[in-house]
Write a protein that binds this DNA or RNA. Structure first.
Lengths: 116, 116
DNA sequence: GAGCGTTATGCAAATATGGCATATCGAATA
DNA sequence: TATTCGATATGCCATATTTGCATAACGCTC
């Protein structure tokens, strides 16, 4: 019935840089080679994906995506080294945390009380 | 420059029940004896505090605050046992987590890389 | 029953979010 | 060099969420 949820994100001067959703977006772009394919696979609009990338790059002040317009396939996108480093660091900080929190939660909630 | 932030909250059927902000609000109400004094001390509007309480009670289906209107002081508010139990359980799940995350973050960020 | 400060709530303004439509681009192809 | 294609890029608007303002309702005290 009652459950626990959590979010973790990097921020610069209070503005969000990257969280789980944006991290996933970067990974998808890396895998599919374009922003549009990545957003399609994730089930989000291209507009949203593009806005997320824009926000990340503006926040960090560095390019995360190499964009190429034109070509037979219309264009492609790939990650910069900075983006790959960002993903790796985020994963190392956030990794396993939700499992840890879930475990703590089970310990606490299985006790007697008015809340179940 | 770059930092890490996190949130943890309890939810019921996807809708948020309690997070750090609402937890603090309950503690302030317990301490000051009224919703209005609590919101004043927290620097939030009474409207926001009231809405938060409403949302929590509706989500959980149990009363968290005993409200009394009228009287010399205009009215008072205090916590039910359910509210106290909720605070205690939240604290035991969320307690120390931000320190743990901060520690992990320092470990990761102090390494060499393009991101500082 | 008048006064007081609280609880309670409608409503509008401000802000954030998300989708639609369309312009723009440039390598490949003919 | 002109056409084609699918991707990138972006303005605009509808919707949802958040926030604050104003005010009503309450009931104990005096």
């Amino acid at each position: 019935m009652i459950g626990v949820r959590s979010k973790i994100w990097f921020a610069i001067r209070g503005s969000p840089l990257i969280g789980q959703g944006r991290r996933d977006l970067l990974v998808y772009i890396d895998h599919f080679g374009s922003i549009s394919a990545a957003s399609r696979e994730m089930g989000i609009s291209y507009r949203k994906a593009w806005s997320s990338i824009q926000a990340m790059e503006e926040c960090l002040g560095k390019k995360l995506i190499v964009r190429r317009r034109g070509g037979r396939d219309g264009g492609t996108a790939s990650l910069t080294d900075v983006a790959k480093e960002l993903i790796a660091k985020y994963d190392r900080v956030a990794g396993g945390l939700s499992e840890l929190i879930d475990h703590r939660f089970e310990e606490v909630v299985k006790e007697q009380g008015k809340i179940h």
